[in-house]
């Protein structure tokens, strides 16, 4: 094991927190859908990938400037979220939840296929309008792309927190999450809030897709980001917004520490499974996560 080095650790943790915020962003989309509709969205990673493809494709194939392509990806994913709820999920309302989960798995495969069909199998790049030169802050080396990603995540999380906690719409969303029947009896059109949750999942996917796509390149592999969502939400609690953020930060940090301290010894790879080890441990200790509600999960 490399010698413990405070500066090195601080650097790992900082980078982990930055990445973690971006995990938190994507996990939020997942948590919102689960809270509002009880559905587990197995296509979250594919949503992210598809958004990245729209952005990269629009820039590459149609020659759009970055901002236009990004706006297109955002609009496209919102429309996709609404459409998916309306066309696929609404007819499944009242069916066992497993039907909805299978539908998300189906849509995941469909999105991977369509993305390859439309944009080709090669890796595309998103040219984010940020510098490649890392910023040096004392001992810390911060890639601008991560800073931008973290900033985007923070802004969205803050805006969302306000909406969720302070606005009347947020109150209605939380009411729907607690009891669809009682919310309906208040005159709340529950289906509208289902659609809204999916549209928000579209928004976070677009934001995540653009930033992750810019960092990693855009191809089918990008959908694997979706798998990172699971340790995040299990750690934080499937139905907790705070949990998504805290879980995201933990996963980001753990991943980076593993990469820094264990990978050199074993020759790499621990970064990828460390969060899952944590996830399994959490499932044994607190299956509902740090901030999740304590009801028994039937999925």
């Amino acid at each position: 094991m490399p010698e413990f080095d405070l500066q090195f650790t601080i650097a790992l943790v900082t980078n982990g927190l930055l990445i973690g915020l971006m995990y938190a962003l994507i996990a939020l989309g997942f948590v919102l859908v689960y809270k509002a509709t009880d559905a587990i969205n197995f296509a979250q990673g594919e949503f992210v990938m598809f958004a990245a493809f729209i952005c990269a494709g629009a820039a590459d194939l149609a020659g759009m400037p970055f901002w236009v392509a990004a706006a297109l990806a955002l609009a496209g994913m919102i429309a996709f979220g609404f459409g998916f709820e309306r066309v696929v999920l609404r007819p499944l309302l009242g069916r066992p939840i497993i039907a909805v989960i299978m539908a998300t798995i189906g849509i995941a495969a469909l999105l991977r296929g369509v993305a390859t069909l439309a944009f080709g199998g090669g890796t595309r790049a998103i040219a984010l309008p940020v510098d490649d030169e890392p910023l040096f802050l004392g001992p810390l080396m911060l890639p601008p792309v991560q800073l931008v990603g973290a900033a985007v995540s923070l802004v969205f999380l803050a805006a969302f927190t306000w909406l969720f906690l302070k606005s009347r719409m947020g109150v209605a969303m939380r009411a729907v999450a607690e009891s669809q029947q009682v919310a309906t009896a208040m005159g709340i059109d529950v289906r509208r809030y289902f659609a809204f949750a999916w549209a928000l999942a579209g928004v976070v996917s677009a934001l995540g897709g653009i930033v992750w796509g810019g960092m990693l390149g855009v191809d089918n592999q990008l959908a694997l980001i979706g798998l990172k969502v699971f340790p995040v939400v299990i750690l934080g609690g499937l139905d907790s917004v705070v949990g998504a953020v805290v879980g995201g930060l933990i996963v980001g940090v753990v991943e980076n520490l593993a990469a820094g301290y264990f990978d050199p010894i074993v020759g790499g790879g621990t970064k990828d499974f460390a969060p899952y080890v944590l996830m399994i441990a959490m499932l044994m200790i607190r299956p509902y996560g740090m901030f999740g509600s304590r009801r028994i999960e039937r999925v």
């Binding site: 009347r168 109150v171 209605a172 939380r174 009411a175 607690e178 009891s179 009682v182 919310a183 208040m186």
Partner: peptide
């Protein structure tokens, strides 16, 4: 709505 405050319950109503 057990997780909402009293006032938030009224707002939802």
């Amino acid at each position: 709505f057990a997780n909402l405050t009293v006032e938030e319950n009224l707002v939802a109503g």
